[in-house]
Design a protein around this nucleic acid. Structure first.
Length: 684
RNA sequence: GCGCCCGUAGCUUAGUUGGAUAGAGCAACGGAUUUCUAAUCCGUAGGUCGGGGGUUCGAAUCCCUCCGGGCGUGCCA
């Protein structure tokens, strides 16, 4: 379905160096640093490399002469001139220039670079070592349908997992199921007390169960407000669910499992899959918490409060949360002022979510000395199986091993930063300092609704809310855009476009193309914003297929495929094998030696940068960096597409060169999109 | 009150961890298609980077302060 078959095996020959650009930069850096040290006796603290503002000024810029100027007591520009003339020659570098007030600008050998880039098999540097990474994302309360906020979480987490895996890291994706929380309890109360339904009756509810519960959940709030005694039902239900082995717990189990199935289905539409679904109920029933509780008590990480507002609770104190060694060094004078304290165990003996989360985090890092049982829960079309935890089972039956990660990323929205800090503080208090350092709260801002979006949805806003830049999504109020609705709308819109362009295609193919475009649009939309930017959701922007969107990038790939196909139809000798051959047997050397002009070099160099963008995106934990980069590459390619008609290019060598460049870009766009979880349709 | 985040063009935003002339998209206006399909491209216009002070060769980026907005600070999650 992707690309045309002729070009599929274009990277058959072994690569010279998989990390060609990164390796080249590294070797140039080392050369320059060594030169500076030997000549000026100065060791540079860090060697910053950047890109000059214009291609004509060079490919790499080194501003270190400004730093060196102080130590060497010379003008930066003079230093730069000395170094530029004395540092060469360097492999892969054609010349070194002095620029501006003292930059050292390096020009790469374009012909050599182009050939190496063409032959590079992989554009992702493989990291060495590093154990398993446990990546937790999605974590939707199993009591209602997924909404756009959940989609942002899942797409960020899924994309980050893809990026890590692309660099050869082992990643285990976990989707935590809070099946014993208040939100599930609320829906259970709704079924039992508002609708008076038995389990058997609930089982016969047809259609989208998550949608049914979405409405029910929204109505429970007003049910609680109606009579004070109604509100007491929640606590009772929660207690029954936690205890297990009763009718309420059975009902909760059915509801949560059926909704988890709905969530998996929704997420699969976006290409998001999981390895493990750990359930909170299993953490409780397997006494993970009891064990963690003992550890916390033993290390003095939590205290039983004997007076004040938290009397009878086990709390983690503010001082302990920030304490490095976990020792309680509280000022006795401030004993009564504990606004920052966090209750871990309530006075009725039940544990809060954070407490359970500490136990879970310990297990994820292999520090608990306990394990779940597992069973296959869901098999994907790919054959991949998502396992679910169990509170009982047979250890003899072979199941994959889960947990015990050396690093943990928790994809959780930024509003929970306080709680995430407490979880990490808990690790520190137990003496697991290194593990605490390797636990990352992968935080992101919420998806809110723009006032216009609320209008579109027919939601009445108060005058106050209308003045706000955005309105928060609220599952409790049923205020939000459901994920499946949004995806359906996107597909319908895309289908209209496809139908208008390709009326002759069979219906199933039209729908398949529309779906690929819709998912591409949605994933890109959720990824193009950096993590700490609030997305004020707006239908017009989310449904757009033009400008900075997923379909724009997909379109560039489709165009490249069209070039390959058309050119070969027109000139059978000009196929992928011939192009590769021309590069490898040196018959293009004379053309390349004449020089790749600035315009085409700029494009080549941009295409090479995918491999530096990936580690950057991982280091910053910022998938948006890859999305932004791909858009700029697609944009540059579209410009190229208009300027150069490859099919009618009369000069054979130039024609092969342009095709080779198109292949280079096509391969990077395809790989980059795949890392974002975006596929490319056969036609657009 | 305290803590964290944000403020860049009319709107939505990026900015390579302090570098050269702050980039995009949308919207607006003017152009380009008998084409490797225009879900595209080119051009025009639009910026006191919230205000002020500081740090230094150099600040949208770091520090201080003020203004404006958001989130958190639950025996909810």
């Amino acid at each position: 379905m992707l690309g045309c078959s002729v070009f599929r095996n274009r990277f058959d020959s072994p690569p010279k160096d998989e990390r060609m650009l990164a390796a080249l930069i590294e070797s140039i850096k080392q050369r320059l640093a060594a030169h500076v040290e030997s000549r000026y006796g100065y060791r540079l603290a860090q060697l910053i490399v950047e890109q000059p503002p214009k291609t004509e000024m060079g490919d790499l810029a080194f501003p270190f002469c400004f730093e060196l100027a102080k130590a060497a007591r010379k003008a930066p520009r003079q230093l730069a001139a000395e170094i530029a003339s004395a540092a060469g020659p360097i492999d892969g570098v054609s010349q070194i220039q002095v620029a501006g007030p003292g930059y050292i600008n390096v020009f790469l050998d374009r012909a050599t670079f182009f050939k190496q880039l063409f032959q590079a098999r992989s554009t992702t540097p493989k990291s060495t070592g590093g154990g398993k990474i446990v990546l937790e994302h999605t974590n939707i309360n199993p009591n209602k349908a997924a909404h756009i906020g959940h989609l942002r979480n899942a797409v960020l987490g899924d994309t980050f997992a893809r990026l890590l895996r692309a660099t050869n890291r082992q990643v285990e994706v976990q989707n935590y199921i809070d099946d014993t929380g208040v939100q599930v309890a609320d829906v259970v109360v709704g079924f039992q007390r508002m609708e008076n339904k038995t389990l058997a009756e609930i089982q016969t509810i047809p259609g989208k169960f998550d949608y049914y519960c979405w409405d029910l959940y929204a109505n429970v709030s007003s049910f609680y407000e109606r009579k004070p005694e109604n509100a007491l039902l929640r606590g009772a239900a929660l207690r029954h669910i936690e205890e297990g082995n009763n009718e309420t717990a059975e009902l909760a189990r059915y509801v949560s499992h059926r909704i988890v199935e709905c969530h998996l289905k929704t997420m699969q539409r976006l290409g998001v899959e999981y390895d493990l679904l750990p359930k909170e109920s299993d953490i409780l029933h397997l006494k993970f918490w009891n064990h963690a509780f003992e550890l916390l008590k033993k290390h003095g990480a939590i205290h039983l409060e004997s007076s004040g507002k938290n009397q009878g609770c086990w709390v983690m104190r503010a001082a302990e949360k920030s304490s490095e060694n976990g020792g309680a060094t509280l000022d006795p004078a401030s004993e009564t002022e504990h606004d920052e304290d966090k209750v871990i165990v309530r006075s009725n003996g039940t544990v809060t979510y954070v407490g359970k989360d500490i136990a879970y985090q310990l297990w994820k890092l292999g520090l608990l000395g306990m394990d779940f049982f597992y069973h296959p829960f869901h098999q994907y079309a790919s054959g991949h199986v998502a396992y679910m935890t169990n509170a009982q089972g047979n250890r003899e039956i072979e199941s994959p091993s889960f947990g015990g990660g050396s690093e943990v990323y928790n994809v959780i929205d930024s509003r929970q930063a306080y709680l995430q800090n407490i979880v990490v503080a808990g690790l520190r208090a137990l003496g697991f300092k290194e593990q605490a350092d390797r636990s990352t709260h992968f935080s992101y801002e919420m998806v809110a609704l723009s006032p216009r979006c609320c209008e579109d949805l027919g939601i009445q806003l108060s005058e106050e809310d209308k003045q706000r830049p955005y309105v928060e999504v609220s599952g409790r109020k049923g205020l939000g855009v459901k994920a499946d609705d949004l995806i359906d709308t996107l597909i319908e819109n895309a289908l209209q476009e496809v139908a208008s362009r390709h009326a002759d295609l069979p219906e199933t193919e039209k729908r398949q193309i529309a779906t690929t475009i819709a998912i591409g649009a949605l994933r890109y939309f959720l990824l193009k914003y950096t993590r700490n930017s609030v997305i004020a959701f707006d239908f017009r922007e989310a449904l757009s297929f033009e400008g900075e969107t997923g379909p724009y990038v997909q379109y560039a790939v489709v165009r490249a495929n069209n070039i390959f196909r058309k050119v070969q139809e027109d000139d059978p000798a000009c196929n992928a094998t011939a192009v590769r051959g021309a590069i490898e047997n040196g018959s293009l050397d004379s053309f390349l030696a004449k020089g790749i002009d600035d315009e085409l070099w700029k494009l080549t160099y941009l295409a090479a940068q995918l491999e530096t963008q990936i580690p950057l995106a991982i280091q910053l934990a910022e998938p948006a960096a890859v999305a932004k980069y791909l858009f700029s590459l697609a944009q540059a390619f579209n410009n190229f597409y208009h300027k150069h008609r490859i099919m009618i290019e009369p000069e054979p060598q130039r024609k092969r060169f342009l095709l080779a460049l198109t292949q280079i870009i096509h391969a990077r766009l395809l790989l980059g999109l795949d890392l974002l979880g975006i596929q490319v349709p056969s036609k657009m």
